[in-house]
Computed example of a mutant assay.
Amino acid sequence: MTETSSPTVLTPALIDPLYAEALALADEARGYFAQTGQDDRLDLEPMERVLFSCESLKVTTRLMHVISWLMVGKAVAAGEMTPAEASVPERRLGFVEGSDETKEPRLTRLPAPALALIRRSRELYERVSRIEASLMEHGQGGARALQDRLGEAF
Rank of each mutant, 00 (worst) to 15 (best):
D100V: 10
H138A: 08
R122I: 01
M136Y: 15
R127K: 12
S87Q: 09
G79Q: 10
T82F: 02
I131M: 10
H65V: 10
Q140I: 05
I118R: 01
G141N: 11
R92C: 06
E101I: 13
R109Q: 04
A116C: 06
S68E: 13
R122K: 08
E137C: 06
R144E: 15
R119P: 02
T102I: 09
D100H: 05
R127F: 11
T82I: 00
G73F: 08
A143E: 02
A86S: 02
Q147H: 14
A86F: 07
A75T: 01
L117I: 04
G98M: 12
A84S: 09
A114E: 04
A143M: 04
L107S: 00
V66P: 04
Q140L: 14
P111E: 00
D148P: 07
P89D: 10
P113C: 06
T108F: 15
A77T: 03
K103V: 07
G142C: 06
T102R: 15
A78E: 13
E85A: 14
Y125R: 08
M64E: 12
R92A: 10
T82C: 00
G139I: 01
A114H: 06
E132F: 12
R120T: 04
S87K: 01
Q140N: 06
P89I: 03
W69Q: 01
E137H: 13
V88F: 12
D148S: 11
A77N: 02
W69I: 00
L115S: 00
L70S: 02
L93D: 05
E97H: 15
A86K: 01
A143H: 01
R91C: 00
Y125G: 03
S99W: 09
E80D: 11
V88W: 11
S129N: 12
E132W: 13
R106N: 09
T82L: 01
T102Y: 15
A114Q: 04
G79K: 08
D148E: 14
M64G: 09
A78C: 10
L124V: 03
R144W: 15
M64V: 07
V66T: 04
F95M: 08
R106W: 05
M71K: 14
L135Y: 14
R149D: 09
I118L: 09
A112V: 04
R62F: 07
K74T: 05
E132H: 14
I118N: 05
T108W: 14
D148Y: 10
S129L: 14
K74E: 06
I67C: 03
V96Y: 08
A143G: 01
P111L: 00
A86M: 06
R106M: 08
R119Y: 05
S121I: 09
V66F: 14
E137Q: 13
R144A: 13
E85Y: 04
K103D: 07
A86L: 02
P111T: 00
E126C: 00
E85L: 10
A143Q: 03
Q147R: 12
A75D: 03
E104L: 14
G139M: 05
R127L: 12
S121R: 07
